[in-house]
Design a protein around this nucleic acid. Structure first.
Length: 201
DNA sequence: CTTCCGATTGAA
DNA sequence: TCAATCGGAAGG
């Protein structure tokens, strides 16, 4: 068995979420099911949450829910929001520094079978929607992002990276969405002019 | 134990 | 503008 060099390893994620969040734009989230079905989505929108950040679930103290954010990078942090949607995070930074990157939107290469009839560009345009499209729930929290698991991450493709360098693709940095705390911190990033991004601004 | 609320979404 | 819906965090 060979190691796929496109796989994003924990070391790459062991940095501040403020660095990892923009770096994850253009990378790919892979969802693999037990029956072999594999779904892929280009990450087009992210938000960073970190230590000392009043909007971060780990801001007050360590709890059963947020414990995973205090650990090593490269793990999933999934939580339920408003009793009906799930949100998927990538745990970042070094051990003991609670931080994570929320994956807010994906551009899918094809519709999941259970989403037939929906508009492909918008089916994963939002953190709750992408978890619905990829069937991410609480059973997938505190799991490693790793090939062979339910979820893993892959680096930008060379063509995508070239388009960034040629300024054919640009990123926008702005404030985060839906918060009551830390509303002014510009810790949200998205791919400019991408139809799969949840919201503009 | 009880109460309150949210890193959302889509319909009114 | 507002309700749906529930796990977890805070308060008594």
């Amino acid at each position: 068995m060979t190691i796929d060099s496109s796989f994003i390893q924990p070391e790459w994620l062991s940095r501040s979420s403020l660095e990892v969040a923009p770096d994850l734009l253009g990378c790919t989230l892979v969802r693999q099911f037990a029956d072999g079905l594999t779904l892929r989505g280009l990450i087009v929108e992210t938000e960073a949450y970190t230590v000392g950040d009043p909007a971060c679930h780990a801001y007050r103290r360590q709890t059963d829910r947020n414990r995973i954010m205090f650990g090593t990078a490269g793990m999933t942090y999934v939580y339920l929001i408003y009793g009906m949607y799930h949100c998927l995070n990538v745990v970042t930074d070094r051990d003991g520094v609670p931080s994570a990157v929320l994956i807010r939107a994906l551009q899918l290469d094809r519709l999941p079978p259970w989403c037939l009839g929906e508009k492909q560009t918008r089916v994963a345009a939002g953190p709750g929607k992408l978890c619905r499209a990829f069937k991410v729930d609480l059973t997938l929290t505190a799991q490693p992002f790793q090939p062979g698991q339910a979820l893993w991450l892959e680096h930008r493709s060379p063509p995508f990276q070239e388009q960034i360098e040629q300024h054919a693709i640009a990123f926008v940095q702005t404030t985060r969405i839906g918060l009551t705390q830390g509303v002014d911190l510009p810790w949200r990033w998205y791919v400019k002019n991408c139809a799969a991004v949840s919201k503009k601004g």
